[in-house]
Lab assay of single mutants.
Amino acid sequence: NKFNKELQWATWEILNLPNLNEEQVKAFIDSLRDDPSQSANLLAEAKKLNDAQA
């Protein structure tokens, strides 16, 4: 389904953001699992944090 694909994509993207530490990655992945419908928003937040920590 749509959420499953978005969840998989967001998870992959977050795992590959180079500037997030392990705790941050875990927190984003946990949030994705808690509410897959928020995957686009969570991915945007993760990318923003990744850029800020570059």
Rank of each mutant, 00 (worst) to 15 (best):
N1L: 03
L32K: 00
A10E: 02
E23Y: 13
N19W: 04
A10Y: 10
D30Y: 13
N1H: 04
L32G: 01
A44V: 12
L42F: 07
F28R: 00
L42V: 15
A27W: 14
T11H: 04
K2N: 15
D30G: 12
Q24S: 03
Q38F: 06
D30R: 09
S39V: 15
F3V: 14
Q24I: 03
Q38N: 13
S31R: 13
A40G: 07
N21S: 02
E23K: 12
P18N: 10
A54V: 10
V25F: 03
N16K: 05
L49A: 07
N21R: 13
L43R: 06
D34I: 12
L15Y: 11
P18A: 13
S39R: 04
F3L: 08
E45G: 05
W9V: 10
A54L: 11
N21V: 08
A27T: 10
Q24H: 03
Q38P: 01
E6I: 06
E23F: 12
E22I: 06
N16H: 14
A27G: 12
I29R: 04
K2L: 15
R33L: 14
I14G: 01
P18D: 07
W9S: 08
V25I: 08
K26I: 13
A40S: 12
S37D: 04
T11G: 03
N50Y: 01
K5F: 05
L20D: 00
D34M: 15
A52E: 12
N16D: 04
E6Q: 04
P36S: 05
W12G: 12
V25M: 07
A27P: 03
Q8M: 06
V25H: 08
S31N: 13
N41G: 03
A27Y: 09
N16R: 08
W9Y: 14
I29Y: 03
V25G: 04
A40N: 09
L20I: 05
E22T: 11
L7M: 09
N16F: 05
A44P: 02
A27S: 14
S31E: 09
R33D: 05
K5L: 05
A10V: 14
A10Q: 02
N1Q: 03
A52D: 11
K26E: 06
E23T: 14
S37W: 05
L20A: 00
L15S: 10
L42M: 09
D34V: 13
S31G: 04
K47Y: 13
E22N: 11
A54I: 10
S31W: 05
K48F: 14
N1T: 04
L20K: 00
F3Y: 11
E13V: 11
K26T: 07
N50E: 02
L42Q: 06
N19K: 04
Q24P: 00
I14M: 05
L15G: 10
A52I: 13
N1E: 08
L17H: 04
L43Q: 03
N50W: 01
A27H: 13
N41V: 13
A46K: 00
E23G: 12
S37P: 04
D30H: 13
K48W: 12
W12P: 02
K48P: 00
A46L: 02
L20W: 00
K47E: 03
A54S: 13
K47N: 10
A40V: 09
N41E: 14
K2T: 15
N50V: 01
Q53F: 08
A40H: 09
R33M: 14
L42N: 02
T11W: 08
N19V: 02
Q53T: 06
A46S: 02
N19D: 04
D51V: 07
A54G: 10
N19F: 12
L49H: 05
E13G: 06
L43S: 04
T11M: 13
L15D: 04
N50L: 01
